[in-house]
């Protein structure tokens, strides 16, 4: 294999590795797995999320309890992943079309709301010691909605297995989360 072909294969592998880490990030926040979340950032990484700005490890330690305390459910779907490689660095934009539910505080009228949202992640990735992790991640808000919660656990919905926020989620039993 020529040097040129090797470099081209490595570029594809780098993009695939970043793609996999973006999936790990989502798995971590949806399963509330703080160790998995930390593994997607370098220790000196940082985030600008508005709800938290600062060191990435501090963000991870803050974010998981924050999700547990504030969201009844969170489900994040990442797409439009766009990666620009620059050696052992990469810039990336991705779209996150998510859904979450939250209990409204009494001053907002109480009840439960269902909030789909259209956000984007803007990242800088770095490969250190052969592993791609985020050096920075920013959260950009494009759109959101706040609808009355209409989810049900009755009837057909009672028959489904459902996602969990701990290691009892079926993804761990499958072995793709450890």
């Amino acid at each position: 294999m020529s040097t040129d072909a090797s470099a081209r294969i490595r570029a594809l592998a780098d993009e695939q590795a970043i793609h996999a880490q973006m999936c790990h990030y989502i798995q971590a926040i949806d399963r509330c797995d703080v160790e998995l979340l930390k593994s997607t950032f370098h220790p000196d990484g940082s985030v600008i999320f508005g709800v938290f700005d600062g060191n990435a490890m501090d963000f991870c330690a803050w974010d998981i309890p924050f999700i547990r305390d504030n969201l009844l459910m969170g489900w994040h779907r990442v797409g439009n992943i766009s990666i620009v490689l620059d050696g052992d660095r990469a810039m990336a934009e991705s779209y996150m079309l998510g859904n979450a539910a939250a209990a409204l505080p009494a001053e907002y009228g109480g009840g439960v709301i269902n909030c789909p949202d259209g956000l984007r992640y803007h990242d800088v990735w770095e490969k250190r010691d052969g592993t791609w992790r985020m050096f920075s991640r920013k959260l950009i808000m494009d759109w959101n909605a706040c609808w009355p919660f209409s989810g049900s656990t009755e009837g057909i919905y009672a028959s489904f297995d459902t996602g969990r926020r701990d290691r009892s989620d079926p993804a761990y039993a499958l072995g793709i989360l450890r």
Partner: peptide, 11 residues
């Protein structure tokens, strides 16, 4: 306002 209001970067 609320959580969405805290996300200051906007498209």
């Amino acid at each position: 306002e609320g959580l969405f209001g805290m996300i200051k970067l906007r498209g």
